[in-house]
Design a protein around this nucleic acid. Structure first.
Length: 429
RNA sequence: GGGGAGAUACUCAAGCGGCCAACGAGGACGGACUGUAACUCCGUUGACUACGUCUUCGCAGGUUCGAAUCCUGCUCUCCCCA
């Protein structure tokens, strides 16, 4: 058994810890859990931290339990929310649970002989509890005064909050507390971990265990991952960065990490990779000497992408990145087979043009605006051409350029580009 | 209820009879530079059949050779006094 708490500490992943937790974990192989909300059918990289914590926990010789909140997801956690949440209907909840389960299984080892991971759904034990039982056996142990003292509740009761809080959300912490109690009783689970916003909910659990079972349970929270520029971690203009390849392609996923700022990268390499302390320190030093090489960002991107999507997806992401950002030429583009080409430009907006148009030679104004809608107006197209902003198949073109048959890539496409980052595909139909 | 101010392009904000497709700032986009970055510099930012034409300055009318600018009505916003 290695020192799990120390591991979190040097990685900057320790926010709050209950007294005696570290000592207990050093002496006993312990079962510990983290809950995941099935609010969508995929987790995003915000949840990745929690998953990796469980993985570290397992690596340290303890038993990780991933709890999917099938029941609590029906109630809604008020923590960190300023307004009442919408409830999910049962069908989408079920779909989400399945999706989240599948993703968790990728990261944790469920077949270890020593300390296999386990996946549980709190709906399984919550569904049979009657309201009367719950109120008598659980509610009796926790005072409303105690519950009201939690930040998540206080914030919503204070005058700052314009909306009130429903009884449903008020009850949430008792539900989560009961989960902890249940796992404590049934699986000898003595530790709950989670984001720093979960501290209140977790301590309701340890309190319940103390009063109802005269037991001792422990808690660890990890800090919220932040970005140096103050924007929200895990968000792009396109929305959340998901772990599901269908929602966020491995290429975009890799790019997200690659684009991290230097300051963030020094934090992220500790949080999101399993490299040891020496390796990370060496990398950081090297990175500071040659920041333009972006060793840290590349390493993080590599480790996390492989961990999440596998080696092959990572290789493709690299290939795509080189084509999009490297010094690739139209020759490189033309050498691609159709499948790879489509993978790389997956999600790029496109429009169809007829084969005849190409055969007859398509002028640039038509290709950019009149026939495709890539740019808003012919005037804008003319301006862009004048600004030297337009490329066809990665090569800059002038207003008099005409697209012809020889420009077709992968049998049916022509790649248009405005500036460096705006791509558009013409599909020859 | 009484009095006052205002509504201009993505946002803020000039203009107050012709020189206005409308100063300036921010944003956005592009170019140079760069690390697929930051900073900096430069350019573009109503449309078109494009050295010209057309449609825009809350809405609808009017005055005038000519209106974002003046007049009338309407809608909305803000402020002050009750």
């Amino acid at each position: 058994m290695t020192n799990f708490v120390e591991e979190l500490r040097w990685r900057g992943l320790l926010h709050d810890i209950m007294p005696d937790t570290e000592a207990h974990l050093l002496e006993h192989a312990t079962a510990g859990y983290i809950g995941f909300d099935p609010t969508a059918d995929s987790l995003h990289i915000g949840s990745l931290v929690q998953i990796l914590i469980l993985k570290h926990f397992q690596n340290a010789g303890h038993k990780p339990i991933a709890l999917v909140g099938g029941a609590t997801g029906m109630v809604g956690d008020p923590s960190g929310k300023s307004a009442e949440r919408n409830l999910l209907d049962e069908a989408s909840l079920q779909k989400n649970i399945e999706g989240v389960k599948a993703q968790l299984s990728r990261f944790l080892d469920f077949n270890s002989s020593e300390n296999p991971a386990e996946l549980v759904n709190n709906f399984d034990w919550m569904k049979d509890i009657s309201l009367i039982d719950f109120v008598r056996d659980t509610g009796k142990h926790i005072t409303v005064n105690y519950m009201m003292a939690k930040d998540s509740v206080k914030k919503r009761l204070s005058s700052e909050s314009k909306v009130g809080m429903s009884f449903t959300e008020f009850t949430y912490q008792l539900f989560q507390g009961y989960d902890f109690y249940h796992l404590y009783k049934e699986m000898d689970c003595k530790l709950q971990m989670g984001g720093s916003d979960q501290w209140g909910n977790i301590t309701t659990g340890t309190e319940l265990i103390r009063r109802k079972a005269q037991g001792k349970a422990y808690a660890i929270t990890v800090p919220l991952v932040t970005k140096a520029d103050g924007t929200k971690f895990g968000k792009t203009e396109g929305g959340n960065v998901w772990l599901d390849a269908n929602r966020t392609s491995p290429y975009k996923f890799y790019q997200y990490w690659l684009n991290a700022s230097d300051e963030d990268a020094e934090k992220y390499i500790k949080i999101f990779t399993f490299l040891d302390k020496e390796a990370i320190e060496a990398l950081i030093i090297e990175h500071r000497e040659t920041p333009h090489l972006r060793l840290l960002q590349k390493k993080i991107g590599e480790e996390v992408t492989i961990m999440t999507h596998g080696q092959e997806a990572f290789d493709n992401a690299i290939k795509a990145s080189q084509i999009l950002f490297g010094k690739s030429t139209s020759e490189d583009l033309k050498s691609l087979d159709e499948q790879t080409f489509l993978d790389i430009f997956e999600g790029v907006p496109q429009a169809s043009v007829s084969k005849e148009d190409i055969d007859n030679g398509l002028d640039m104004i038509g290709a950019l605006a009149a026939k495709t809608g890539f740019l808003n107006s012919n005037g804008e197209a003319r301006r862009a051409l004048k600004e030297n902003a337009i490329s066809v198949n990665k090569e800059k073109v002038k207003e008099d350029f005409v697209i012809s048959t020889s420009d077709i890539i992968a049998n049916a496409y022509v790649l248009l580009q405005r500036g460096k980052k705006n791509y558009f595909l013409l599909k020859i139909a």
